[in-house]
Simulated scan of single mutants.
Amino acid sequence: MTSRVEHTDVGAYALGLLEEDDRLAFETHLLGCGLCRAELSDLSGMASVLSGIGPVEDRAPPSPEPVVSLLRRRRAAHRRTRRGTFVLGMAAAVTLVAGGLAVGTQLAAGSAPTVAQGSDGHMGPAEQFYADGAPIEGRGVDGVTGGLVVESKAWGTHAALRLAGVKGPLQCELVSVGRSGERRVMTGWSVPPAGYGVPGSPDPLYMHGGSATPLKDIDHFEVVTSAGRKLLTVPPTA
């Protein structure tokens, strides 16, 4: 499982769709990610809502398979696609169920998962959130560039990071630094030797992160290595 997509597996984990190796890796990730734990709590009732829901009889061939089984088949067929699009499709499916619409018909017919309006279907959730927001540019060192899109939440602060110009191998963390000096790790990842946003590996890294510190109490954000080297500093507002 790559750091680019591990934050997008919450919906698949909630439905029990992850294969064994991905499930174990995601459970390890949950131990250090408050944002994913909060999202998992919100989605905890999804499997029970979807199980037992089958295709609408007058609009699709009769089938005893529940929606969860159909989603499993879709995941197996599209395993190489980005998980972010799949999870967005599941979220849209749950919304349709709540509205009493014929989700089973769409899934049985093999239609593509619905994605949020304005998405091109190729962005992961962190990249989409960054693209739709107002990025705050950071100050980097040694050619490192990047920025954050931040929002205040009831539980603290949510951020999407864009990072480029960094080569590995490195272990990095996004940290919120409070006005009181308190430091909180928002998320962590590994930078492979090829790096991100550099020649030969031009794509930047996009990551979600969460801090329990309210946005109004944050002095700045930092991207730091496990050795304590500061790569990027971002103010809380532009």
Results as ranks from 00 to 15, higher is better:
184 R>P: 04
172 C>H: 00
203 D>C: 11
159 A>L: 05
193 P>F: 07
159 A>H: 01
160 A>D: 13
178 G>E: 12
184 R>L: 11
144 V>H: 08
155 W>V: 12
154 A>T: 14
182 E>R: 14
192 P>M: 02
196 Y>H: 08
147 G>R: 02
141 V>T: 14
191 V>Y: 00
181 G>L: 03
163 L>R: 05
202 P>Q: 06
202 P>F: 07
160 A>G: 12
146 G>P: 06
195 G>P: 05
154 A>E: 14
200 G>N: 10
202 P>I: 05
155 W>G: 15
203 D>P: 08
165 G>L: 02
151 E>Y: 04
155 W>E: 15
167 K>E: 12
145 T>E: 14
163 L>A: 11
163 L>F: 09
175 V>N: 08
187 T>P: 06
191 V>D: 00
174 L>V: 01
185 V>Q: 10
197 G>A: 12
147 G>H: 07
141 V>Q: 11
199 P>M: 06
153 K>D: 12
200 G>H: 09
143 G>R: 03
176 S>M: 02
198 V>F: 04
183 R>T: 04
187 T>V: 14
141 V>L: 08
195 G>L: 03
145 T>Y: 03
152 S>V: 07
201 S>C: 13
165 G>M: 03
197 G>D: 10
153 K>P: 03
167 K>G: 08
172 C>T: 01
183 R>W: 03
158 H>R: 14
156 G>N: 03
200 G>M: 08
166 V>H: 01
196 Y>N: 02
203 D>Y: 12
198 V>Y: 03
197 G>H: 07
165 G>Y: 02
169 P>G: 04
170 L>D: 00
145 T>K: 10
189 W>L: 00
200 G>E: 08
200 G>F: 09
200 G>T: 09
156 G>V: 05
178 G>P: 12
176 S>W: 00
180 S>F: 08
141 V>S: 12
141 V>H: 08
178 G>I: 06
145 T>P: 07
199 P>G: 11
178 G>W: 06
154 A>R: 10
193 P>K: 10
167 K>P: 02
197 G>S: 11
185 V>Y: 04
152 S>M: 08
159 A>D: 02
203 D>I: 07
147 G>E: 06
202 P>A: 10
161 L>R: 00
149 V>L: 11
174 L>F: 02
189 W>E: 00
156 G>Q: 03
184 R>S: 13
202 P>Y: 07
199 P>Y: 08
174 L>T: 01
195 G>V: 03
181 G>V: 04
184 R>I: 10
180 S>Q: 09
145 T>M: 09
176 S>F: 01
166 V>C: 03
183 R>N: 03
174 L>K: 00
162 R>Q: 14
153 K>N: 06
194 A>N: 11
162 R>I: 08
202 P>W: 05
193 P>V: 11
149 V>Q: 11
175 V>S: 09
161 L>S: 01
156 G>T: 04
151 E>M: 06
158 H>N: 14
149 V>F: 12
